[in-house]
């Protein structure tokens, strides 16, 4: 009996979003008379940070403090249409829609301010702290609250904007079948170090090391949070979770948390992450989206690490102790590949 160390590597190109029907999302932005802005979306925040990121994007585009922006994702019946929170599309698609909506609202805000200050809107700029002033003359200034108030009660304007993001239709080349289904790719590489027990077939993860290229990390803490958590969801898919043995027939399959296994707090290992920023040309402020790809490279990397450790090539997930033991048996013993 022995424990064998193994190291596995995987690299991925990850397409952001999908192309079905142009993968559109809409956003609506309007100001209230107190100068606070509301961003209405149907894009759901399930903890990944959709609200935080769209709030930052709206504030940046409008030129107002982030505290003055609210994001309402309350109801997909009454909100503007969104395809949904999946395929890592949120930051990219919805973020672009929010930029478009916020630009339109900003233009009206500046017109309202221009009317109050008796200048041309083209001569105005925002300071990001709630003021609009004449370029080069900060003294000639009005607050966004006062401009919104004037728009509402004096000028009869709605300070509002509409935005949509739609991927251009990608035709298929009849000769080659070539097309451009996706406009934006993110990239990642991951190394996993494990130990495999050749008597029990059990895997212990010693360390994860990864690099993720996510465009610009619009909210670095949220990006890190997703990468840390998502890696363990990937590990869970790789080594624990299964609907076996007869999926899609549920017979004898796991039905609850007693049988449907996932890693617990005692199973995790240190994860060293490098976040590489290479802003995407068509991303909102260069952002792509960490989303699903934080789980993806873990699966092939783990399968490769098992091969490195004991010479068993497993091509069906999850990589269970049983499969490892059967592989070792078929090979007539563990065949560590050794460090090259």
């Amino acid at each position: 009996m022995a424990r064998h160390k193994g190291r596995g590597f995987a690299a991925i190109n990850y397409p952001i979003g999908m192309n079905l029907g142009g993968d559109p999302s809409q956003a609506l932005v309007h100001s209230n008379p107190d100068g606070k802005f509301m961003v209405s979306l149907s894009s759901i925040d399930l903890g990944q940070g959709m609200k935080s990121v769209t709030r930052q994007i709206a504030a940046e585009t409008l030129g107002v403090p982030v505290e003055d922006v609210y994001v309402d994702t309350a109801d997909s019946d009454t909100g503007p249409h969104c395809m949904g929170s999946f395929a890592s599309r949120g930051t990219h698609r919805v973020g672009n829609a929010v930029i478009a909506a916020a630009q339109e609202a900003r233009a009206v805000l500046l017109e309202a301010a221009a009317e109050e200050l008796e200048v041309s809107a083209a001569d105005l700029e925002t300071d990001g702290r709630g003021n609009i002033h004449v370029k080069g003359a900060p003294g000639r200034s009005i607050t966004t609250a006062a401009a919104s108030l004037a728009a509402q009660f004096k000028q009869g304007r709605t300070v509002s904007g509409r935005g949509i993001f739609l991927i251009p239709f990608a035709g298929v080349d009849p000769e080659t079948g070539e097309m451009t289904p996706v406009s934006c790719f993110a990239h990642a590489a991951l190394v996993v170090d494990i130990e495999v027990d050749d008597e029990t077939g059990e895997i212990e993860v010693a360390k994860l090391s990864s690099a993720y290229e996510v465009g610009r990390a619009l909210n670095p803490k949220l990006v890190e949070q997703q990468l840390v958590g998502g890696a363990w969801m990937g590990m869970s898919h790789a080594a624990w979770e299964t609907t076996e043995p007869y999926y899609p027939d549920r017979g004898h399959g796991p039905e609850d948390f007693n049988q449907y296994l996932m890693p617990g707090p005692g199973d995790i290992a240190p994860h060293d992450i490098a976040i590489l920023e290479r802003p995407a040309p068509d991303g909102p402020y260069g952002g792509k989206g960490p989303g699903e790809m934080c789980a993806n490279p873990v699966l092939p990397a783990l399968a490769n690490a098992v091969y490195d450790a004991v010479g068993v090539r497993i091509d069906e997930l999850p990589v269970t102790p049983e499969k490892i033991l059967r592989g070792i048996q078929a090979n007539g013993g563990a065949r560590p590949k050794g460090r090259r």
Binding site: G47, V228, G229, M233, M262, I268
Partner: peptide, 9 residues
């Protein structure tokens, strides 16, 4: 059980 955070945070 936590599905999201990977426990570390």
């Amino acid at each position: 059980i936590c599905r999201c955070t990977g426990y570390e945070p």
